[in-house]
Amino acid sequence: MNKNYIYIQKAQKEEYDDLRKIFLNTRQEDFNWMEYDSIKLDDFDISTEGELILTAKINNEIAGFVSIWEEDKFIHNLFVSSNFKRCGVGKALINQSAKVVGLPLVLKCVKANENALNFYLSQGWTIEEEVTEKESYYLMKYEGINVLEK
Rank of each mutant, 00 (worst) to 15 (best):
A116Q: 05
Y142H: 05
I127M: 03
E133A: 13
Y142T: 01
F31Q: 10
S47K: 14
E114R: 10
E71L: 05
F23Y: 15
V110Q: 09
E133Q: 13
N118C: 05
G102H: 04
I39R: 06
E29Q: 14
G124V: 01
V100E: 11
I58M: 09
D45G: 04
I58K: 01
I62Y: 09
D30H: 14
E51S: 03
C87K: 09
E143A: 11
K99I: 03
R86P: 00
F31W: 10
F119D: 02
S97L: 03
N115D: 11
F119L: 14
L78P: 02
G88W: 08
K73M: 06
L54T: 03
A56C: 11
T55D: 09
P104K: 04
Y138N: 05
W33A: 04
Q123L: 07
F84L: 07
P104S: 07
M34G: 00
A116H: 03
V80Q: 02
F44P: 01
E129S: 12
K40H: 14
I94W: 10
Y142N: 07
N59K: 08
E129P: 03
S136M: 03
S81W: 03
V89A: 03
L121W: 04
E70F: 05
K111L: 12
E35W: 01
Q123S: 12
A112S: 12
V89R: 02
T48A: 06
V106E: 12
D37P: 01
F44G: 02
N59H: 01
A63K: 08
L117F: 15
E35L: 13
C87M: 15
H76Y: 09
E130D: 03
T132D: 12
Y142A: 08
L41P: 00
L121E: 15
L41M: 06
A98C: 13
F84N: 02
Y120I: 02
K91Y: 11
D43R: 02
G64Q: 05
G102E: 08
G102I: 14
I127Y: 05
F119W: 08
Y137T: 04
K141E: 14
N25W: 09
N95P: 03
A56N: 09
E49P: 02
E130P: 01
E49W: 10
E35G: 10
L24V: 08
Y138Q: 00
L121F: 04
